[in-house]
């Protein structure tokens, strides 16, 4: 949901991002501009470069060409005139404000649930323990994990692990959250719990880029859906336009394929691929 009059255009500006692995070009000068408060869902077939593109947004995967700016500040760019140590310092400072949620959670198994959320606040944001714990408890409550704060992550279900990963991100007060298939590694019955958390975040105006195969979720939460194929953005626009009236043959094929494999084509609950944009 765009935050009305406060909407600031070009909050995240990704310009002509190019990336190759060996001889294989994975991203062909891909550009994306995201406004503050906007929720973007990226869809596309496996191997089309969604993850790679998302990971250039916080320069976790450095691009070979193009640049990324967040609120005007350079996240990364090729060429980059800054010295390596300046780059690293400024990048770390920017990453502290950009959260990332991974497909396989990447919670830290040697730290308790609470400490998972406290640790980056103290190490990166330099908060005192008292404040960090207060923020952590608030973030855990937001994702419904406040009663698990003393648990070890390994004793959590997949859905709980992913919500922990989200709490870890939220406690840092991010201005942007990047998510790479946050529900793909989950058992079907755990998907909706995570998606509901994401919906609430979207309603609160969090700027998010979410790579997902959950079309039902995309259509109800996204402000814009971006369809990628073979390292390019092929179509983008409002979810109902993109998902109901695809212009290109490739998107049509992609949606058909997803619909055939969908568990319940017209499911009313979030979490199943569906063309239903209602509710």
């Amino acid at each position: 949901m765009a935050a009305g009059s406060e909407t600031k255009h070009n909050f995240l500006e990704m310009t002509e991002i190019r990336k190759s692995f060996g001889d294989m070009t994975v991203l062909h000068d891909v550009s994306l501009s995201v406004s503050q408060g906007e929720v973007i869902c990226i869809i596309g077939p496996s191997g089309c470069g969604k993850s790679t593109f998302l990971r250039t947004a916080n320069w976790l995967t450095p691009a070979d060409g193009g640049e990324v700016r967040l609120a005007g500040e350079l996240v990364g760019g090729v060429p980059d005139a800054r010295s390596v140590s300046t780059q690293t310092k400024e990048l770390n400072a920017l990453r502290a404000r950009v959260g990332m949620v991974f497909q396989n959670f990447n919670v830290w198994p040697h730290l308790s649930v609470l400490e998972n959320v406290v640790c980056p606040q103290m190490v990166v944001a330099k908060r005192r323990r008292g404040e960090a714990e207060k923020q952590a408890l608030a973030a855990l409550a937001e994702v419904g994990l406040d009663d698990k704060k003393s648990e070890w992550p390994d004793n959590l279900s997949g859905g709980q692990k992913q919500r922990l990963a989200i709490a870890r991100v939220l406690a840092m007060d991010p201005v942007l959250v990047l998510m790479d298939e946050p529900t793909s590694a989950l058992d079907p019955e755990l998907v909706s719990g995570v998606l509901n958390v994401l919906k609430r975040l979207a309603q609160k105006g969090m700027t998010m880029i979410i790579v997902t195969h959950e079309l039902g979720f995309a259509s109800s939460v996204a402000d814009r859906v971006v369809f990628m194929e073979e390292g390019r953005i092929v179509e983008e626009g409002a979810p109902d336009v993109i998902l109901q009236t695809p212009k290109t043959e490739r998107l049509k094929l992609f949606l058909e394929k997803l619909n055939i494999t969908a568990f319940k084509p017209n499911s009313d609950s979030a979490g199943h691929p569906t063309m239903d944009s209602g509710s």
């Binding site: 916080n58 976790l60 690293t88 770390n92 400072a93 920017l94 990453r95 502290a96 404000r97 950009v98 959260g99 990332m100 991974f102 396989n104 990447n106 919670v107 830290w108 980056p120 190490v123 990166v124 990963a165 870890r168 840092m172």
Partner: peptide, 14 residues
């Protein structure tokens, strides 16, 4: 696991 380092770096840790 490699993801452990990535998730740490993504929070802004050096």
């Amino acid at each position: 696991a490699k993801g452990q380092l990535e998730s740490a770096r993504a929070t802004g840790m050096s």
